[in-house]
Simulated assay, not measured.
Amino acid sequence: MSRIQPLRREDLPQYEETFQAVENALGVLPNSTLTMARHPEVMAAFARLNAVVMADGRVGGVLKQLVATIVSAAAGCSYCQAHTSHVAEQRGADAEKLAAVWEFEASPLFTEAERAALRVARGAGLTPNAVTDQDMVALRRHFDDEQVVEIVAVIANFGFLNRWNDTMATELERSPLSWAGEHLQDHGWSAGKHSSRTPEAP
């Protein structure tokens, strides 16, 4: 159960344009957006940043979602893992490949370029940051400087979201919760504090 309750969408008609843009991108309006709405400038600024960072650019949207999934897994954010893997599927990620993303180093479904990007994402999600010079050299064998900036922007974007959602214990919405329960539990995923359970009294 969320530690700070999201506001109700129907009570915030002045932000409907932002809500619709976020919902169109993700297929659902996240509770994280409705919690950020308690500080509208933060919500609007983050929504704009997220739209730019996660859009198809010189790095494709599916790879960006896989990067976001891996960095969120490394950071331990179940909420963001559910959202990013679900959006990856919506954007056309191959189901078999998506199921194997946790074994990207060994799976033949991934290219060397994808492995390099996901390796950096995994290292960047750890504390302290575990990305090495060798990891970046490998990344730059496959991506130019502008593409590297796009990939690192995704990682940094989810640094914000992972900490926001894990600290707030943001409750997962029905669609990503259902999808993650069906597709991610075999890989050790659980909703944990992002479920609708009532927290125990101190």
Rank of each mutant, 00 (worst) to 15 (best):
D94W: 12
Q147L: 07
A169I: 09
G123D: 01
N129I: 05
V137M: 14
A117M: 06
A100K: 07
A153M: 11
N157K: 03
R115L: 02
H86M: 15
Y79K: 06
L161M: 08
S175R: 14
C80K: 02
A156F: 10
L98H: 07
S107R: 01
W164P: 05
A117H: 04
W164H: 10
R141I: 02
E171Q: 10
S107H: 02
E103T: 06
R174H: 07
T111R: 06
V101G: 07
A113W: 04
I151L: 14
Q147T: 05
H142I: 07
E171I: 02
D135S: 04
M136N: 11
G123H: 08
Q147K: 08
E96K: 15
L172C: 01
Y79I: 02
D166F: 15
F104H: 00
N162S: 03
V149L: 15
R174M: 04
M168D: 13
D133E: 13
E146F: 09
I151M: 08
E96Y: 14
N129G: 00
S178D: 14
R115W: 00
E96P: 14
T127M: 12
H86I: 15
N162K: 00
H86R: 15
A153H: 11
D94K: 11
F143Q: 05
A124Q: 01
V148Y: 07
L109I: 01
R115D: 00
D133I: 06
L98I: 13
V87K: 07
E103P: 06
P108W: 03
I151E: 12
E146G: 07
N157V: 10
R91L: 11
H83Y: 11
D145T: 10
D133R: 12
S107I: 04
N162A: 03
V152H: 11
V87C: 07
D145H: 09
R119D: 02
A138M: 10
R140I: 04
E89P: 13
R122N: 10
A153I: 06
E173A: 05
A82P: 07
H142A: 07
A82W: 03
E105Y: 11
Q134M: 14
I151D: 11
A106I: 12
Q147F: 10
Q81R: 04
A75D: 02
N157T: 09
R174K: 09
N162I: 03
S178F: 12
V137H: 15
A130C: 05
D144N: 10
E114I: 08
G92C: 13
L172T: 03
E150P: 07
D144W: 09
A138W: 11
P108N: 00
M168Q: 13
N157Y: 06
A130G: 04
A124S: 04
E171Y: 06
G125M: 00
G123I: 04
T170H: 02
F110D: 00
N129S: 01
A88D: 08
C80I: 04
W164S: 08
T132Q: 05
A95P: 13
F110W: 06
